[in-house]
Design a protein around this nucleic acid. Sequence first.
DNA 1: ATATAATACTACGTAAGCCGATATATCGAC
DNA 2: GTCGATATATCGGCTTACGTAGTATTATAT
Lengths: 107, 107
Amino acid sequence: MPENKNALTEVVFYILLSLYSPLHGYGIMQNVKEISGGRVDLGPGTLYGAINTTVSKGWIQPMEGEKNSRKKEYQITDTGKLIVQNEISRLEELVSNGKKILGEDKR
Amino acid sequence: MPENKNALTEVVFYILLSLYSPLHGYGIMQNVKEISGGRVDLGPGTLYGAINTTVSKGWIQPMEGEKNSRKKEYQITDTGKLIVQNEISRLEELVSNGKKILGEDKR
DNA sequence: ATATAATACTACGTAAGCCGATATATCGAC
DNA sequence: GTCGATATATCGGCTTACGTAGTATTATAT
């Protein structure tokens, strides 16, 4: 059976990147928009949906304690870091394959 | 309104790359598998579905003539080449953002 | 001759992703 | 004291992508 089951969406990728430092949902929304140069702009449905699926996959986790604030913080897990590294490798493969073809096309 | 409508799927990206030289459907299937190192393996539904959507978007087009063979060849259009270039830029942005965060994390 | 590979294509189902709307609550500024 | 920004969360629906299975024809190998 064909199995292409590794690609992350841009949304998930940026959420994972954002959580290398602990951050709460709303902060993720802002941070993703900022580091993507405004290109990736999350609505609440997208954001909290993605948070839930990544939590249930064990890629991020809510932080302990923190009862004093209404902010709910998350951080990336070791599994999540692995996923990010694999994704970067995959992306680099795409870029390198793409550039190879583009180079041949120029000449 | 938020609009994150630029990301290509791996399947479409590799199909576009394959068509920098004219190629028929079945050949695309084999070529994609080869240049992706076996990672991307298309079934017929996926392949011809993607061919149809990219044709209707004007990213690829069937080649003229060629009545002698039952092979139906396609090639990438100028629009398609633009799409590929934008996609590579987008991918490079992801990689560079990713590596920046990873670098900070190591130290 | 016949089986197998090459080649093209459709129909259908399912899952995932993303988004808008909506609800609710608090904080700070003016 | 009111309004905009901050903050969390759910629901329902739309769209797209992908895969499986099937149909059909022709070329090639044995």
